[in-house]
């Protein structure tokens, strides 16, 4: 049944409206970033000149490029490891019978439900035993995999078309080859989603890097920028500008990935 032209127009308008509402807070962020002081937070006016001032102030702060670099290392490191390892584990859990499969999946779901707050101290002790306090390993490795990632990939991998996997096997491909050549391309949307989300999660992670890193040379953006907001003394506009600037790299990444993402989706959509 072909949807009527009117119906699709209405649908398009409604969708655009929803998206517009969702983008309003983003605009509010621009407005706050150009606020002169803390009494100027309510307005929706945007002052480009003042925003420019805040920008140059922000980049003039010695630490900013360093924090940016650290954030890139941390977020990329975690995202890459996550895709590789959670991807592999998720696929195995969904498609390959191996001893301990049920236990591992139970642990994954259990982990998902475990409060990160309460494992903070035990995890710190583990990282200390490994000698990784105050290092990139200490910040990255504890997040190199996640229950979320394994679970996400598993759910998607459950829906992989058997025929394709089977025909690859019939063609004599080894299991690892089936995984890399058949499953991974089909799982691309899930893996890219995972990559983006984990990149973002680390880009936004404040507590763990703060606890583990003892020198500013290791600090990622959230820790470094939280310095702008001291207890009773902060520049609202500057904090807003920092928030906005911080949001740019993940947004760019998202738009870049989007192209491959859609390609991946259509590829996955070919299957029956």
């Amino acid at each position: 049944m072909r949807p009527s032209r009117l119906g699709s127009a209405v649908r398009g308008t409604l969708l655009s409206l929803v998206v517009a509402v969702m983008l309003l807070p983003v605009y509010a962020m621009l407005a706050v970033a150009s606020a002169s002081d803390a009494t100027d937070l309510g307005g929706l006016g945007f002052d480009a000149a003042r925003f420019g001032e805040h920008l140059s102030q922000l980049f003039g702060q010695g630490g900013f490029p360093l924090y940016l670099r650290n954030s890139v290392i941390l977020s990329l490191g975690v995202a890459v490891l996550e895709v590789v390892f959670s991807g592999a584990a998720g696929y195995a859990l969904a498609q390959l019978p191996f001893p301990g499969r049920r236990v591992l999946f139970a642990v994954v779901v259990g982990t998902l439900s475990l409060s990160p707050i309460v494992v903070l101290v035990p995890m710190y002790l583990v990282v200390r035993q490994l000698g990784w306090i105050d290092s990139f390993q200490g910040m990255i490795v504890p997040f190199a995999m996640s229950a979320f990632g394994v679970f996400l990939v598993r759910q998607f991998a459950l829906s992989l078309p058997r025929e394709l996997l089977l025909s690859a096997r019939v063609d004599g491909a080894g299991e690892l080859r089936v995984f890399l050549r058949v499953a991974v391309p089909l799982l691309r949307p899930a893996l890219l989603t995972l990559f983006l989300l984990q990149f973002l999660a680390q880009w936004d992670n404040l507590l763990w890097p703060l606890v583990v890193a003892n020198r500013p040379g290791l600090w990622p953006l959230p820790v470094g920028l939280s310095q702008l907001q001291t207890e009773y003394d902060f520049s609202a506009g500057l904090v807003g500008t920092a928030a906005l600037v911080t949001a740019v790299p993940p947004l760019v990444l998202m738009f870049v990935l989007q192209r491959y993402y859609v390609a991946g989706l259509t590829l996955g959509g070919v299957k029956k």
């Binding site: 592999a88 195995a92 191996f98």
Partner: peptide
């Protein structure tokens, strides 16, 4: 399949053991 599955899941098993099961 069991061998490939174990191989692919091994890093995850070690990871969850060290960073979640032990702290848990």
């Amino acid at each position: 399949e069991a061998r490939a599955g174990s191989l692919l899941a091994l890093p995850a098993a070690v990871y969850f053991l060290v960073f979640w099961v032990v702290p848990f």
